[in-house]
Measured scan of single mutants.
Amino acid sequence: LQLFIKTLTGKTFTVEMEPSDTIENLKAKIQDKEGIPPDQQRLIFAGKQLEDGRTLSDYNIQKESTLHLVL
């Protein structure tokens, strides 16, 4: 599923993930694309901070959802 990642600077980029992927996987993918170390990434969806060990489906993140990346 394609997700939109929006940064505080207003930049938006996309990543391609599976619902079974963990937040950790997502942070690694963001590191590949943007060079931001996972330990500096905080991801927010629907007002909640996402925890590394959980999956996208745990948070009911669907295709074309927008996640906010806070550094």
Rank of each mutant, 00 (worst) to 15 (best):
L67R: 02
K11H: 10
D39K: 07
T55A: 13
G47P: 01
L50D: 00
E16D: 10
L71P: 10
T9E: 10
L71V: 09
D39L: 08
V70G: 05
Q31R: 14
G47C: 04
D39H: 10
Q40T: 15
L43W: 03
K63A: 11
T9G: 12
E64G: 13
K27R: 08
T14F: 08
E18P: 05
D39N: 12
V70E: 09
D52K: 05
G35S: 06
G47S: 06
T7I: 09
K48N: 06
L8H: 11
Q62M: 11
S65Y: 12
T14G: 06
L50C: 03
E18T: 10
L8P: 13
K48E: 12
Q49H: 14
I61K: 02
P38C: 04
Q2I: 08
L1V: 07
V15M: 07
L8F: 10
I5G: 00
K29C: 04
I30Q: 00
E18R: 15
E24D: 13
K11S: 13
Q2L: 13
K63R: 14
D39E: 12
T55C: 03
F45W: 08
K63H: 14
D21T: 06
T22A: 05
G10N: 08
E24S: 14
S20G: 12
F45N: 02
K27P: 00
M17V: 09
L67E: 02
L50Y: 01
E51H: 09
D21Y: 03
Q41N: 02
G35P: 02
K48W: 08
R54C: 04
Q2A: 11
G47D: 08
Q2T: 13
R42I: 09
L69Q: 01
L1W: 15
L8Y: 10
E24W: 10
A28N: 07
L43V: 05
A28I: 13
P38A: 13
D58Q: 09
K33A: 13
L43C: 01
D52C: 03
E64W: 15
L43N: 00
R54G: 09
Y59R: 01
L3R: 00
P19L: 08
G53V: 15
Q2Y: 11
L3D: 00
D58N: 05
L1N: 05
Q49E: 15
T14N: 15
Q40S: 11
T55D: 03
H68P: 02
T12E: 09
R54S: 09
H68Y: 13
Q41M: 14
T9M: 07
V15G: 00
L50G: 01
D52T: 15
T22V: 06
K63M: 09
F45H: 12
T12G: 07
L69P: 00
P19H: 15
D39Q: 07
K27N: 01
L71N: 08
R42D: 05
G47T: 05
L1Q: 05
V70R: 08
K33I: 07
R54D: 05
P19I: 09
K11F: 10
L69N: 01
I44W: 10
L67H: 02
M17A: 12
K6P: 01
D32W: 15
E51A: 13
P38E: 08
T22I: 06
T7N: 06
H68E: 08
P38R: 13
M17Q: 03
M17E: 01
K48V: 11
L26G: 00
T55E: 04
K33V: 12
D52P: 12
E34W: 13
K6S: 15
S57F: 13
I61T: 03
K27C: 01
T66L: 09
T7Y: 14
I23H: 01
L1R: 04
I44V: 13
I36V: 14
K48L: 15
D21E: 13
T14R: 15
R42Y: 13
D32M: 15
D32E: 13
G10Y: 04
L69W: 02
T12A: 10
S57L: 12
M17F: 09
L26D: 00
F4R: 12
D58L: 03
I23G: 01
A46I: 06
I23W: 01
T66R: 05
L43P: 01
L26T: 03
L67V: 11
I30F: 01
L50V: 05
S65M: 08
K29H: 07
I44F: 11
A28H: 13
V15Q: 02
P37V: 06
E18M: 15
E51I: 09
K27L: 02
L56I: 10
G53E: 07
N25H: 14
N25L: 10
R54H: 09
D58C: 02
L26Y: 00
N60I: 04
L8I: 09
I36W: 13
G53R: 07
P19Y: 10
F4T: 11
T55P: 06
R42N: 08
Q49D: 08
K63T: 08
E24Q: 07
R42W: 09
S57H: 07
L50A: 02
S57M: 15
G53F: 09
I61D: 02
E64Y: 10
E34K: 10
I5W: 01
P19W: 08
I61P: 03
N60V: 05
P37M: 06
E18V: 10
R54Y: 11
K27Q: 02
D52E: 14
A46N: 10
E18Y: 12
K63W: 09
E16Q: 10
P37Q: 06
R42G: 05
I61R: 02
H68M: 12
E51P: 02
K33Q: 07
H68R: 06
I5H: 00
M17H: 04
D58V: 04
N60C: 04
L1T: 04
L1C: 03
N25I: 12
E18K: 10
Q41G: 03
R54F: 11
L43A: 01
T55V: 15
H68A: 10
S20R: 08
Q62C: 04
V15E: 01
E24H: 11
H68K: 05
Y59T: 02
Q2E: 08
L56H: 01
L43F: 05
D58F: 12
Q62K: 15
K29W: 14
Y59M: 04
Q62V: 11
V70Q: 07
E34M: 13
M17S: 11
G47H: 07
L56Q: 00
M17R: 01
K48D: 06
D52R: 04
F45A: 03
Q2W: 12
T55Q: 11
L50K: 00
L50Q: 00
K6C: 05
V70C: 04
N25Y: 12
L56G: 02
K27T: 02
K63P: 14
L3W: 01
E18F: 13
G47A: 04
L56Y: 01
S57R: 15
M17N: 02
R42K: 08
S57V: 07
Q40C: 04
G47V: 02
N60T: 04
D21G: 09
I5E: 00
A46E: 08
Q62E: 11
R42E: 09
R42C: 05
A46W: 12
E64V: 07
T12R: 12
I23Q: 01
I5V: 10
D21S: 11
E51T: 07
L26F: 02
E64N: 14
K11N: 15
K29Y: 08
A28F: 13
Y59S: 03
K27I: 02
I5C: 01
E64T: 08
F45S: 03
T7A: 06
I36E: 02
D32H: 13
T12W: 08
T22S: 10
G10K: 06
T9K: 10
K63C: 04
L3F: 07
S65H: 06
T12Q: 11
N25R: 13
N25K: 13
K29L: 14
L8Q: 08
R54K: 14
